[in-house]
């Protein structure tokens, strides 16, 4: 027989109609279609956070690494026996971004272990809901690290932000969203690449540069009491997030399918 042809050695087997044979009726005719995007994204995020709460592996590693960075730099940047306040923006954002990269890599390593990213992409849930869910979970992890970094910076560098602390919190949350959006796309894309640990920062950081610059500028402006400048950079961060949310939604599905 020639390759590629199908030889029928016996009459085709009878094929019972699927509807007649289906016994459990576990899925309604359009139940999956009706389930909302937000509910599905929420389910993915809740699962990621549940897994993390159970092990606390990623958040502890990130927090420890960020703490080490803040402590080391608070001793490194000293002038007249006082920690240099001007170093705070760079130290805080470096701690968040570096710790975030560690967390991002580990969070996606989990998906690789049981090949569960494939399982997620195989479900009828819109792939953008999977992206949104994972982004929300990463954002939560980064914010939890920022919640450690910010008080440490204020303490070690002896900074009193006053009412500006709320504005700084907003800046950090916007930074966390931007980091998570861009990071989730690239971490998912590199999931099957052998040298992903090396490649992730290499491809991620150049795209994060505008976000890091805006974050440090906004933080610096808040420390200097220049509210106008701080708002400009805050808006820049919000625009950065909006642009990359759109780009990520547009490209995610194409990037994760082999």
């Amino acid at each position: 027989m020639e390759a590629g042809l199908i030889e029928v050695a016996a009459p085709p087997v009878s094929c019972p109609p699927r509807a007649a044979g289906r016994t459990t009726g576990a899925v309604g005719p359009s139940t999956a279609h009706r389930t909302g995007f937000l509910r599905l994204a929420g389910a993915v995020a809740a699962k990621d956070l549940r897994v993390e709460l159970r092990s606390r592996e990623v958040v502890y590693t990130m927090a420890f690494f960020a703490t080490v960075i803040v402590v080391v730099f608070s001793f490194a940047f000293v002038k007249d026996q006082r920690a240099l306040i001007e170093a705070v923006p760079g130290v805080a954002w470096a701690a968040v971004v570096f710790a975030g990269t560690i967390g991002l890599g580990r969070a996606f390593d989990r998906e690789r272990e049981g090949d569960t990213m494939r399982a997620l992409l195989l479900t009828p849930a819109p792939r953008l809901a999977v992206f949104a869910g994972k982004t929300v979970a990463i954002t939560a992890l980064v914010i939890s690290v920022e919640a450690v970094v910010l008080p440490l910076c204020l303490l070690f560098f002896n900074v009193d932000l006053g009412a500006g602390v709320l504005h700084l919190a907003l800046v950090l949350v916007l930074g966390a969203v931007g980091f998570a959006v861009v990071g989730t796309v690239f971490a998912a894309m590199l999931l099957r690449v052998r040298s992903r640990d090396v490649l992730l920062p290499v491809v991620l950081y150049p795209i994060l540069v505008p976000m890091i610059m805006a974050g440090t500028k906004a933080t610096g402006a808040l420390l200097a009491g220049a509210a106008g400048d701080a708002w400009f950079w805050t808006q820049f961060l919000a625009a950065y997030d909006a642009v990359f949310v759109i780009v990520a939604l547009w490209t995610f599905e194409a990037l994760v399918i082999e």
């Binding site: 999956a32 279609h33 699962k47 897994v51 159970r54 049981g114 090949d115 195989l122 009828p124 792939r127």
Partner: peptide
């Protein structure tokens, strides 16, 4: 998306979360 709801896959890997 709906087509994928009709497909069940058992792969080499478990496709399940070890932490759950």
């Amino acid at each position: 998306d709906r087509l994928r709801g009709e497909i069940g896959l058992l792969a080499h890997a478990s496709l399940c979360y070890g932490e759950l």
